[in-house]
């Protein structure tokens, strides 16, 4: 599972490796959005530490055979945060780093929103919020019917769970006791227009999931030690559906994007681009 070169490392070594992978992914995210002069850097930067750990240590997938039926599924429900996913898919070898240049370009492998018809390694065509969890339920049912131990991981955003059908899906997952369904909630506290707090207060998110009967664990979504611990926790709990609630910072890693609603869906200009790469330790 994950990247074989990371097998056998102790946690300190693993965390260092993961940090370096996610740093490289952050650089690619900035490059993609800058080149396209469009896209969603904020949510890509908030999710990328989680995606890095998920792909590099946990997900049972094979870049050489992306459609292998018994693979774990990963559903990026917040599909606008596609640069994050493309960057880790390139690191894992599902697509090439050159493919990243096709982000938002006609005929490109990397569509604006993740699309299973265009990109190897993408299991769900997203873009409309609130749909991924239900789709994930379907994948989890299929695994159960197949008698397989594979899991389905779904990443949701905190703004996204304002969509009512997410709660239909939460209820249904518990009702059907889909223990192979694992949610990672990227709580970056910002949505399209503004802070979640001003758009639609979510109040106590862990309590809400808990009251729906899910296993719940809360972590710092940028502390790689807590993230790998969270991934292990997800895989140890197979009785009921589980949610890892990750508190993150939108735009994490680029100072002027951090906690800034303006960079939910905006590209950096040339000056900002240079500054971002410098902060990410990448020479232009």
């Amino acid at each position: 599972m994950g990247l074989s070169r990371l097998n056998g490392l102790n946690d300190d070594e693993l965390v260092e490796e993961l940090k370096e992978i996610s740093r490289k992914c952050r650089v690619e995210i900035i490059k993609m959005v800058y080149r396209a002069q469009a896209g969603h850097p904020g949510g890509s930067l908030s999710e990328i530490d989680l995606l890095t750990a998920l792909y590099a240590t946990t997900l049972n997938v094979n870049p050489k055979e992306p459609k292998w039926n018994d693979r774990d599924r990963f559903v990026l429900s917040k599909g606008h945060a596609s640069p994050g996913m493309y960057s880790i898919l390139a690191e894992m070898g599902f697509i090439s780093h050159e493919d990243l240049e096709s982000y938002r370009v006609l005929g490109g492998v990397c569509q604006g929103h993740v699309d299973m018809k265009h990109t190897p390694g993408v299991d769900f065509s997203a873009g409309s919020l609130g749909m991924g969890l239900s789709f994930g339920l379907g994948c989890s049912f299929a695994a159960k019917f197949d008698g397989s131990n594979r899991n389905c991981y779904v990443m949701l955003g905190d703004g996204e769970i304002q969509e009512g059908s997410v709660w239909e899906a939460m209820m249904a997952a518990r009702h059907h006791e889909l223990g192979n369904l694992k949610v990672i909630l990227d709580c970056n506290r910002i949505q399209n227009d503004d802070f979640v707090e001003s758009q639609m207060r979510m109040f106590n998110i862990p309590e809400k999931w808990s009251s729906f009967g899910w296993n719940v664990k809360e972590i710092d979504g940028h502390d790689m030690y807590q993230i790998i611990e969270g991934m292990r926790w997800l895989n140890e709990n197979n009785d009921l559906p589980s949610v890892l609630i990750a508190n993150t910072i939108k735009g994490k890693g680029v100072s002027y994007m951090e906690d800034n609603p303006k960079f939910h869906g905006a590209a950096p200009n040339e000056e900002q681009y240079s500054k971002a790469l410098m902060e990410l330790g990448e020479a232009i």
Partner: peptide
């Protein structure tokens, strides 16, 4: 799927994808 058509359609989609 209970009284939840939106969820039902996407659960079906997930099943079809597998």
């Amino acid at each position: 799927c209970g009284i939840g058509e939106q969820n039902m359609m996407l659960v079906a989609a997930g099943l079809a994808s597998s």
